[in-house]
Amino acid sequence: MIVLTCPWCGARDSEEFGYVGELGARRPDPKAATPAQWRSYLYQRANIAGWTSERWYHRMGCRRFLTVERDTTTNEVRSVLDAGGLAEDQ
């Protein structure tokens, strides 16, 4: 179990967080998307061995969705940012 440094709560066990998934393509325009595009958004994941950007949710903390840069081979974490773009100075 790794440590994630939540930008709001500080260093916490990953047990407090929910892993949402890797950040892939943005949500396609629901009016214009073809089935192939939509299902790629739903199901296709790169599953990278190495540095990835992923979404986590601090379920037992601040309840903020976070963007985490993590190396999936070493579990090294480079950054943890608020996914909604909220910053400390706001």
Partner: peptide
């Protein structure tokens, strides 16, 4: 609850 937060925070902040 989490579903609502997710759409608000990540798609429509």
């Amino acid at each position: 609850w989490e579903w609502a937060e997710r759409w608000l925070q990540t798609e429509h902040p």
